[in-house]
């Protein structure tokens, strides 16, 4: 039986600066880390700690794993000091995948905020890989400024994909910004899918998740059809250490994505 706390080695093949504080790391693990969209991995920055991240690449891509990370704490700051050729540790995959089979034939409405688009990208790419299984895929994404939009170079390609509908907003625009200005909920006044059967998937800062969830509920989305990426302090990733408890759930084991139905009765789920 393997040691569950032991990471394997993953080489950084390439880094891509998405914004001044967000960077994508393309990793090649020494063994396959067979994650499915929704699951996460634990990355070790040797000597600086370990932190959980949901991959941003498609789960159909097995050779490499991409992880898009914002510099916010001790481990991520140290990670930003590494470059192509350096090694990190990786453990996983952990947590629950999206139940994609129950998304089939339906509209999927993705709402992302800031670096929250990273995990949604993994789901988005997995959905468009088999787009014929789904009715349509909508992506609504908000960032603080045009400069802080992640995957700027990819979004124009995504917009050309069949059955895909994308809209963007920024809190504060600039001279070149021609799309909407406002928080991401300003893109949700007219939701172009059947709210009673569609699936919504939300990832972003807690305050954004809270208001997007309320907007989706008001629009008629069923609580069991609203999937939320919950941010808690995940340490072990194994459902053992206790840190990530959210009401009756351990987000590392039962999540990290939980439905609004699961968490709506927990006091203050968004912190």
């Amino acid at each position: 039986m393997a040691n569950p706390y032991q990471p394997i080695e993953a080489q950084i093949l390439k880094t891509i600066d998405e914004t001044p504080t967000i960077r994508t790391f393309v990793l090649k693990p020494e063994q396959d880390v067979p994650f499915l969209a929704g699951q996460f991995v634990e990355l070790t920055v040797p000597g600086h700690g370990e932190a959980p991240f949901t991959p941003s690449s498609s789960h159909f891509e097995r050779e490499t794993i991409e992880v898009t990370i914002m510099k916010v704490g001790r481990a991520t700051t140290a990670l930003f000091g590494l470059k192509a050729g350096d090694s990190v540790g990786i453990r996983g995959p952990y947590g629950q995948r999206y139940p994609l089979e129950s998304f089939e034939g339906k509209d999927i409405y993705l709402v992302g905020g800031g670096v929250g688009l990273a995990p949604l990208r993994s789901l988005f790419l997995s959905l468009v890989h088999e787009i014929d299984k789904y009715r349509r895929v909508f992506l609504r994404y908000g960032a603080r400024t045009p400069e802080e939009i992640v995957y700027k170079y990819l979004i124009p390609q995504w917009e050309k994909l069949k059955k895909v509908d994308i809209d963007l907003s920024v809190d504060v625009g600039d001279k070149s910004w021609v799309r909407k200005v406002g928080v991401v909920t300003c893109l949700m006044d007219d939701i172009p899918c059947d709210e009673t059967s569609s699936i919504a998937v939300v990832c972003g800062p807690p305050v954004m998740m809270k208001f997007v969830t309320f907007k989706l509920v008001d629009a008629g989305f069923k609580p069991e059809n609203i999937y939320l990426s919950m941010e808690t302090n995940m340490s072990c990733g194994l459902g053992q250490c206790g840190h990530c408890r959210l009401g009756p759930y351990f987000t590392c084991k039962d999540g990290p994505v939980l439905t609004w139905e699961q968490i709506k009765d927990i006091p203050e789920p968004f912190v």
């Binding site: 000597g47 600086h48 072990c236 053992q240 250490c241």
Partner: peptide, 22 residues
């Protein structure tokens, strides 16, 4: 009580990970 924290300590090259009661 079963809670623990995984705590990494740097070495000259690499790290050692401890599991400590939390």
């Amino acid at each position: 009580c079963y809670c623990f924290l995984l705590y990494d300590k740097a070495r000259a090259e690499g790290m050692d990970r401890s599991k400590v009661w939390d």
